[in-house]
């Protein structure tokens, strides 16, 4: 091989930056959607109405058994059929990631809630709260504090997983990297750069989580 050409990266930095912004946007929407629907799913999963709990359990187990790439393909294929017209891959990616991550966030939230002693809900209900109020004001504040580091770690994994939209050629960071790599015939530089960039972001993120978490415990 020849020497590494750093200029090829500098030259294409604006294009790659656009891709990275799209990765961040997709991750942010999927994290927000995943936590929101994950919370609802977790409440359904803990419901005392059996069929409701079963449906939620089925949803979670289904999405935890299939690979994310297959879900991305499914939704990418289904959305235009359901809408009746073609849409860009972004909408499909948002739907696929939100549905998939809902299952994972649901399990994290459920574990957090169930680590709070049951007696606290009973105490809340006994002092006149409804079940939902007891959840909202007594259980959730404690549970969220406990699960915060795991929620954040899952969000870093989610950010890494956004690279998989490469398979439907949504122009995220990874797809941009690969486009430039094949246009400039510089795979070595570009993929090493992609690895370094993802590493820098995710490593900094996990360090930050450790620091936040450590500060919390002390």
């Amino acid at each position: 091989m020849g020497h590494l050409d750093v200029n090829v990266i500098l030259r294409n930095l604006p294009y790659l930056w656009e891709g990275l912004q799209l990765s961040f946007l997709l991750a942010a929407i999927a994290i927000a959607g995943g936590i929101f629907f994950g919370l609802i799913m977790a409440l359904l999963r803990m419901s005392s109405i059996r069929p409701v709990a079963w449906i939620a359990l089925g949803y979670v187990n289904f999405f935890r058994s299939v690979p994310l790439i297959l879900v991305i393909f499914w939704i990418y294929f289904l959305v235009p059929l359901l809408l009746g017209h073609a849409t860009g891959p972004f909408l499909s990616a948002v739907v696929a990631f939100t549905m998939f991550e809902t299952a994972y966030y649901c399990e994290i939230i459920r574990a957090g809630v169930q680590s709070t002693p049951k007696g606290q809900i009973s105490a809340g209900v006994a002092s006149g709260m409804t079940w939902l109020q007891a959840m909202r004001h007594i259980v959730m504040p404690q549970a969220f504090r406990k699960m915060r580091p795991i929620l954040l770690t899952q969000s870093i994994i989610l950010f890494q997983d956004t690279s998989l939209v490469y398979v439907v050629t949504l122009r995220d960071f990874m797809t941009s990297v690969s486009t430039v790599a094949s246009q400039e015939l510089r795979m070595v530089e570009l993929y090493l750069f992609a690895g370094a960039a993802y590493f820098a972001i995710c490593f900094a993120g996990s360090r930050l989580i450790n620091r936040l978490d450590g500060g919390f415990r002390r």
Partner: peptide, 29 residues
């Protein structure tokens, strides 16, 4: 552990498949 956990598997896949053969000595690649 930190290195392999903080790079998406897809990127690692490309590094092994596309990049490694270029970085090795000619015959090995």
């Amino acid at each position: 552990v930190e290195l392999f956990r903080n790079i998406p598997v897809l990127v690692q896949m490309f590094l092994w498949f596309f990049v490694l053969p270029e970085l090795l000595p000619r015959e090995a690649g």
